[in-house]
Amino acid sequence: MPLNDLPEGCIANALSFTTPQDVGRLSAVSPIFMSAAVSDFVWERFLPRDLESILSTSPDGSRLLASAASKKELYFSLCENPVLVDNGRKSFSLEKKSGKKCCRLSARDLLITWGDAPRYWTWNSDPRIQISRSGRAYFGVLA
């Protein structure tokens, strides 16, 4: 076989050294790039190394790990649908362009000085704030 054309494995290998954003865009380069750009080999590299230990602590996470048909599907599911982990106290997702881990913490989980003194702090519910299944208010923190 002449090596004028790079085999798909070589393309996938090179793509795995770029970023999720690059891979998404460069799938339009050629058909061989497109198939490299959906490979588990590439997306495995963009998933956090400790993903399994993060997700296996939660029923939703375990379900997702078991049901995702590919690493790419798992990646985008985590970008678009945050998963409740740590007994519902945190919501975990990935930042789409970089694959960085994002964590939303429950406000009740924060240590706030005099947080339990109604004189200084009150816990109001605000319909604009996302309420988790466990009834906690969240705000965003980039991990």
Binding site: L6, A14, T18, R25, A28, V29
Partner: peptide, 24 residues
């Protein structure tokens, strides 16, 4: 692969085609 990745990162589809000498 790291060197190639550094050179194609954030580049356009057209740029990467010519980088690899690939026809569309």
């Amino acid at each position: 692969n790291q060197a190639v990745a550094d050179r194609i990162e954030n580049k356009s589809v057209e740029y990467v085609r010519s980088f690899f000498g690939i026809d569309n």
